[in-house]
């Protein structure tokens, strides 16, 4: 389990990082927290010629409240999200998700931008970005480009990032108090990738109805999956039962070592029921 040989370049500035990406193209990989990349190197699943370490780019980290959005730099560690009062106050859904990411050692190194850019379909943060209507701020030599989360996750480990671009930050709209959220996941061991996870958000009003629901499942497809039919059913008269039934149309989960597709579908229905109860509770 030794990685194939690679060159290592520690970028001192964004310009240096862009230079390296230009020069090496697909042979280069950015190193942020390294919590997925380093194991992939050791297993020789990834064999980049050059690692471009961006950990020295201090400007890429930090959490700031800017008007109606919380802007979180790409190099912000999961542990920093976990400790942030801004996140706790304005993005409670995100605050609930972060402690469910892996283990403390991984959270102390792993970064928001790394998780978003890798786009692991079973990871929490891409699902949260979708559920919270976040905007991904991509940066290239030409400048910034803002991509809605719903347009960002394209396929299995595929994103809208273009060659030469990196994720600079993620902007999350501040959630109003009546907007509730929760993140539920089922993993056989604490810290494992979820077999099925759900980031759910909705506006709860006095009548007990769930308005404008967001149901984003993870671990059930090539990307985080927004369950549009179930969202519509949940907002409509049919309520939770109709939403659970509608998941049949939304989800096409794969079989894996945990079980067959119907196992994940079943768990997704259970999670939807539990999430609705949480949002209403």
């Amino acid at each position: 389990m030794k990685p194939a040989p690679f060159a290592y370049l520690r970028a001192r500035s964004l310009a240096e990082a862009f230079d390296a990406l230009d020069r090496h193209g697909e042979e280069a990989r950015l190193l942020a927290g390294g919590q997925s990349l380093i194991p992939a190197l050791n297993l020789r699943l990834a064999t980049p010629a050059v690692l471009v370490d961006i950990n020295g780019l201090a400007g890429l980290a930090g959490i700031a409240l800017q008007g109606g959005v919380v802007r979180i730099g790409a190099l912000t560690r999961h542990a920093a999200l976990e400790a942030s009062e801004i996140v706790a106050r304005h993005l409670p859904l995100l605050a609930e998700a972060v402690p469910q990411i892996a283990h403390p050692a991984i959270r102390s190194r792993g970064t928001l931008g790394g998780s978003i850019a890798l786009a692991d379909p079973a990871a929490e943060l891409p699902a949260c970005a979708l559920a919270l209507d976040a905007t991904i701020v991509a940066m290239g030599r030409a400048g910034e480009r803002r991509i809605a989360a719903r347009d960002f996750f394209r396929g299995l480990y595929q994103t809208d990032l273009q060659p030469g671009e990196l994720v600079a930050a993620v902007e999350f709209p501040v959630q109003p108090p009546e907007r509730r959220g929760c993140v539920l996941e089922l993993a056989r061991r604490q810290g494992d990738y979820a077999i099925v996870g759900l980031a759910a958000a909705a506006t709860v009003q006095g009548d007990g109805a769930l308005r404008d629901p967001r149901l984003v499942f993870f671990g059930v497809g090539p990307t985080p999956v927004r369950a549009a039919a179930a969202e519509a059913a949940l907002a409509g008269a049919g309520g939770v039962a109709a939403a659970q039934a509608a998941l049949e149309r939304d989800l096409d989960p794969p079989a894996d070592l945990h079980g067959p597709p119907q196992f994940r579908r079943h768990l997704a229905r259970v999670l939807l029921g539990r999430a609705a109860a949480r949002l209403l509770g």
Binding site: L186, H258, G259, F263, H266
Partner: peptide, 13 residues
């Protein structure tokens, strides 16, 4: 005794 096996025994999947 995995969750999938237990659910199958329960007839839920």
């Amino acid at each position: 005794f995995t969750p999938a096996r237990i659910l199958a025994a329960l007839g839920r999947i």
